[in-house]
Amino acid sequence: MDLTSLYTDIVFEHDKRPLHAGLREPFAAEVHHVNPTCGDEITLRLQLEGEGEQARVADLSYDATGCAMSRASASIMADLLIGRTVAEIEPIAAHMEQVMHARGKETGDEDVIGDAVALTGAAKFPNRVKCVLMSWKAYQAALLETRVLGER
């Protein structure tokens, strides 16, 4: 079994020195997500500027406990999303989800998901997919909670 496809240097870099970590103010929404099978947890705060799809992520802060994959995923995601608009993020999140559910058949487009391609090795390990996607689900839940897109 090829462990190096899972534990890349990029994963460990983010695990050791996570970007944008820690909970900050101000924030428009805060969510807490748990992976009940392993007990991994993330608290994620989202601060937006502007309205609707053009609202921009002014800050995304988080406190994550979990495996290297889940912590690296939160770090990479925060770095990827901060400064982008909700509209810009939508295809990034969609691509991430698609690749993670492709059972390792897709490697992911670095132009779209940046460092997160380093996480796509986990797609070959079905029980690790949730580790990677937990932070992304938390972002999406936080976005809904801000109601910047209205009630939907």
């Binding site: 462990l3 007990g39 991994d40 979990g66 495996c67 994959m69 690790r128």
Partner: peptide
Amino acid sequence: RHPHDVGQVLDSRGVEVRVGHHCAWPLH
């Protein structure tokens, strides 16, 4: 090291163990 990461490396060697809270979250 998170147990998930430990278990993944052990599994690569064929050593099958359980990782996580083992349905005893308050104990952990």
